[in-house]
């Protein structure tokens, strides 16, 4: 720091540590911290990945009743398919099959800002009846006791067992549902319930047509589907 000036350290043990010593201390601390963290990461990462995959697997089976196996679809910018195209990336859409290998529906993962943080959900969509058949919240930090009713309140969840998606999914006040495309909001948690409605609507805007196209081709693999 202070170029060639040669300051001799004070004799007592209150000696100021030199710049190199400070850098060395921090460098060592950083090095050991890194070592510990990488060790922890290497050991826990497979478990964490497995937990996430397991949570998703359970959720797919939950929202697609009778599902025996599923595969994640690929989106190449124009259409959904099972085989990866030249520049296809994974789509947040899963194709579910029953034990006979027939396509029984599609599970879609979407997210939307709620009252506190992003709400992430997965829902089952049946292209034959053009309905949402079930919905499961994957991640939510909504207010305990109020907003968390989006996944704890059975009456609210009952909205999603046969929810028409055309012309669009809309939110109505509790007790005012008259149409199959309406979702009854939770009293006291309007923002959270509207976020869920919006999340479903956005998911359908993005993926309904690609799913219908794919389904019209017989689930892309020529396997039997319920439509045939």
């Amino acid at each position: 720091m202070s170029e060639q000036t040669n300051i001799s350290p004070p004799p007592s043990d209150t000696a100021e540590a030199g710049p190199m010593r400070l850098v060395a201390t921090l460098g060592l601390a950083g090095f050991f911290a890194g070592l510990l963290l990488v060790t922890g990461f290497v050991f826990t990462q497979p478990l964490i990945e497995a937990n996430k995959a397991e949570a998703l697997r359970v959720a797919v089976y939950q929202v697609l009743q009778g599902c025996a196996s599923y595969e994640q679809l690929v989106w190449d910018g124009k259409q959904l398919s099972i085989e990866p195209g030249p520049d296809g990336g994974l789509a947040p859409v899963y194709l579910g099959r029953n034990a006979e290998g027939q396509v029984i529906g599609y599970a879609v993962v979407t997210e939307e800002p709620g009252f506190q943080d992003i709400i992430r959900a997965i829902y089952g969509y049946d292209p034959v009846s053009d309905q949402i058949i079930d919905m499961e919240i994957l991640e939510s930090k909504e207010t305990p006791g109020l907003g968390d009713k989006i996944f704890k309140d059975d009456a609210f969840r009952g909205n999603f067992t046969a929810l028409a998606v055309q012309p669009e999914i809309v939110s109505v006040k509790k007790g005012e549902k008259t149409q199959p495309n309406e979702v009854e909001a939770i009293t006291g948690a309007t923002i959270s319930s509207k976020a869920v409605t919006r999340l479903l609507q956005k998911g359908m805007e993005a993926w309904r047509q690609p799913i219908l196209d794919l389904n019209a081709q017989g689930g892309a693999t020529g396997e039997n589907t319920k439509t045939q």
Binding site: E16, A17, R21, L22, T25, L26, A29, G30, F32, A33, L36, L37, G40, F41, F43, T44, Q45, L47, I48, N51
Partner: peptide, 26 residues
């Protein structure tokens, strides 16, 4: 060294917090 002690403590604490975070998630 006492000039960098707070930084060093925070590095140590943050390391263990990250470990706890990973362990709980796993």
């Amino acid at each position: 060294a006492k000039q960098v002690r707070i930084t060093t403590y925070i590095v140590i604490i943050a390391t263990f917090v990250s470990l706890v975070d990973m362990l709980l998630a796993a």
